[in-house]
């Protein structure tokens, strides 16, 4: 069986819809991972020992096991405890939490790198510890971690393909569905890869622009 790309246009609408889902899931999971990353970082650094230690263990589990396995746990686990969410929601939660842990690592390092004098200066103005963190320390740390977090978000795009395995009709599963009808795996997986590549290039372009803007603002 040779290659025949002429049937591609006929199924383009399905693939494009898949693309839209991939972008939507990536953006939603990215937002979740960003907010989650900040929350996790604050817990890991500033919460009492009794919360911090179990939390560290949880982080360790997230970083030491494959994302695919975590997706299975979240998807089937939620059903198990009686929460029946649509697959795409489970996918966003799974991707978002997974990358929140990685973002948290970056943010923790960045918070620790913010000069101690900044916290002291804020406290002498009368801000509480929480206020000083929120208003002074974290904004600076976030600025420092935007470039490496950008790399995580680009990784997230590619890992979003994994949610096809729990039945989310994003780009990869859309390609699979079309292949089920046409028996043309090579053509449609290459097509899907091309779309991922283009989205990836787009994200890299945005990342470069943001980095340039940050480098100006210091």
């Amino acid at each position: 069986m040779g290659l025949d790309f002429s049937i591609v246009p006929k199924y383009m609408d399905i693939i494009l819809l898949g693309c839209a889902w991939t972008i939507g899931i990536t953006v939603a999971a990215a937002l979740l991972s960003f907010v989650g990353g900040i929350v996790f970082a604050v817990i890991a650094l500033f919460s009492p020992w009794i919360i911090r230690q179990p939390f560290r263990l949880l982080e360790w589990v997230f970083m030491g096991t494959p994302l695919l396995l975590q997706l299975f746990l979240i998807y089937f686990g939620l059903v198990q405890i009686g929460i029946d969410l649509p697959a795409f929601v489970a996918g966003i939660i799974g991707l978002g939490l997974h990358f929140a842990v990685y973002n948290s690592e970056l943010i923790q390092t960045a918070i620790l790198a913010v000069d101690k004098g900044q916290m002291e200066a804020a406290r002498t103005l009368g801000l509480s510890r929480g206020e000083a963190l929120r208003k002074v320390v974290i904004p600076q740390a976030v600025r420092d971690v935007i470039p490496p977090i950008g790399n995580n978000m680009i990784a997230l795009l590619k890992d979003s393909a994994l949610v096809s395995v729990i039945g989310v009709s994003e780009l990869t599963l859309s390609a699979q569905r079309v292949i089920g009808k046409t028996y043309r795996p090579f053509e449609f997986y290459i097509l899907a890869a091309a779309f991922y590549y283009v989205i990836n290039l787009g994200m890299e372009w945005v990342q470069r622009r943001i980095e340039r803007r940050i480098s100006i603002s210091r």
Binding site: L162, S164, Q176, R184, F186, Y189, Y197
Partner: peptide
């Protein structure tokens, strides 16, 4: 690095026989 490893795997395993 710009495309998902999963897709690369699928191209090789499912698409490979075509080529």
């Amino acid at each position: 690095r710009g495309t998902p490893a999963l897709i690369q795997l699928f191209i090789l395993y499912f698409g490979g026989p075509q080529v």
